[in-house]
């Protein structure tokens, strides 16, 4: 059991609003963890704390044994090992698909442009968008943009991938293509934390599901346990609304 992420008593306060109220969890290498919960429950904030996009108010997050929120931590080095995919894709609109993917590997990893190019090539084949290599993001559909965003994150060869509601901004017919890429990634053994409303995906791909509500992990377990035999009343209430 090879722990890569450890969260201890994580709290997050926005002014007087307590968004996270003490979250503990541990994620092993190659594990796929889906985080579900009602909107405003703190699940996105939790995810953003994992790579330090959000400060912690209390508690700590350890990634590979390194404390994410310690001021002495080289947060850039840490983040280069943690890929992140956003709800709104956040591709760089002034750069082509190729440039989006090669930017960080050349600047942060010091790859030559030839090396970065061939890596981008491979990844675009993987997400099925090689023909869009010279397109600009605004020439792509939402699903295509999200697949490019996944390729961009993977180009850093991260050990962990975080997904923040990656299909929530997509038209329904494009959700499948993005989930397929994510499923393939999970099958390759990538460690993944996925905040999602796609219960079907969570059930099928996740090793473990966390149900977060009001800033706490209310219940966690295998998809079968959590979806079919929820123990907590709040979990049951939530599931009855979304399933």
């Amino acid at each position: 059991m090879d722990e890569v992420i450890r969260v201890e008593g994580l709290t997050k306060q926005f002014g007087t609003l307590a968004v996270l109220r003490g979250i503990d969890c541990s994620i092993r290498a190659s594990e796929v963890v889906c985080v579900i919960g009602p909107s405003g429950s703190g699940k996105s904030t939790f995810l953003r704390c994992l790579n330090g996009l959000e400060d912690a108010s209390g508690g700590q997050v350890l990634v590979g044994g390194v404390s994410v929120h310690d001021p002495k931590t080289d947060v850039d080095a840490l983040r280069s090992e943690i890929g992140m995919v956003f709800q709104r894709f956040n591709l760089f609109p002034h750069k082509t698909v190729l440039e989006n993917i090669t930017l960080a590997p050349t600047k942060v990893r010091g790859l030559s442009s030839a090396q970065a190019h061939s890596r981008a090539h491979e990844l675009l084949v993987k997400v099925g968008l090689l023909d869009k290599i010279d397109a600009y993001p605004n020439q792509l559909s939402g699903g295509q943009q999200q697949r490019v965003a996944i390729a961009r994150a993977l180009a850093m060869q991260p050990r962990i991938m975080l997904f923040d509601e990656p299909t929530s901004a997509l038209d329904p017919e494009m959700v499948g293509e993005v989930l397929a890429v994510m499923q393939a990634l999970a099958e390759e053994g990538m460690t993944m934390v996925v905040v999602t409303h796609e219960m079907g995906f969570a059930r099928q791909v996740a090793d473990r599901v966390l149900f977060i509500d009001e800033g706490l992990v209310v219940e966690e377990g295998t998809p079968a346990d959590l979806f079919d035999r929820p123990q907590e009343e709040r979990t049951r209430r939530f599931l009855s609304k979304v399933l």
Binding site: F86, F92, K107, A153
Partner: peptide, 26 residues
């Protein structure tokens, strides 16, 4: 958009690099 900075930082790009390559050109 804040998301541009977040995406760049999440890739391990430092703040000055993010400014120079992502924010300022746009």
């Amino acid at each position: 958009d804040r998301g541009q900075v977040e995406a760049s930082r999440s890739l391990g790009m430092s703040f000055p690099r993010t400014m120079f390559h992502v924010v300022l050109p746009q």
